[in-house]
């Protein structure tokens, strides 16, 4: 049996596809899983949630992030490309003056930082911000 050039290409490209596929698929699943863990499986919608972060972070060791969401009961921040993608969850109590939190987070690489809010009516909303990281900050 002779192996045609076409067949070699077909096998090679199939192999390439298999090699390349898992990475993006894995990342997408992980972000989805992280979101589902907070929302108990519900798909978050859009709402008054905002996330502010620098477009470019020189140093991934400490990136300032502010989240705000009027009407939120709690807000979670996720850095999906970090070794530990969950960053923090803030619950607002009766003496909270606003549903706002500013903090500094670690970022291993360029990614979309995700904020998820659980609203007082039980619904969930999501927002994200792209941050380009020059030097990663997770020391892995």
């Amino acid at each position: 049996m002779t192996i045609s050039r076409r067949r070699i290409l077909a096998v090679a490209s199939a192999g390439l596809a298999v090699t390349l596929m898992p990475l993006p698929a894995q990342a997408a699943t992980d972000a989805g899983d992280l979101i589902a863990r907070f929302t108990d499986g519900a798909t978050p919608g859009e709402g008054p949630l905002t996330i502010s972060a620098p477009q470019i972070a020189e140093n991934g060791n400490a990136v300032g992030v502010e989240v705000a969401c009027p009407g939120a009961r709690s807000i979670r921040i996720l850095a999906p490309a970090n070794p530990n993608p969950e960053v923090c969850t803030v619950h607002f109590g009766p003496r909270a003056g606003s549903r706002t939190l500013s903090t500094r987070i670690r970022m291993a690489e360029t990614m979309d930082v995700i904020a998820l809010a659980e609203m007082e009516d039980g619904g969930f909303v999501q927002a994200s911000a792209r941050v380009r990281v020059t030097i990663g900050g997770c020391g892995g």
Partner: peptide, 21 residues
Amino acid sequence: DTVIEMEIEPSLAANPFIEFE
């Protein structure tokens, strides 16, 4: 009375800075 309560994971930066109202 609670103002805020936070669960923190290892991806928060060293020397935790937390600002709220």
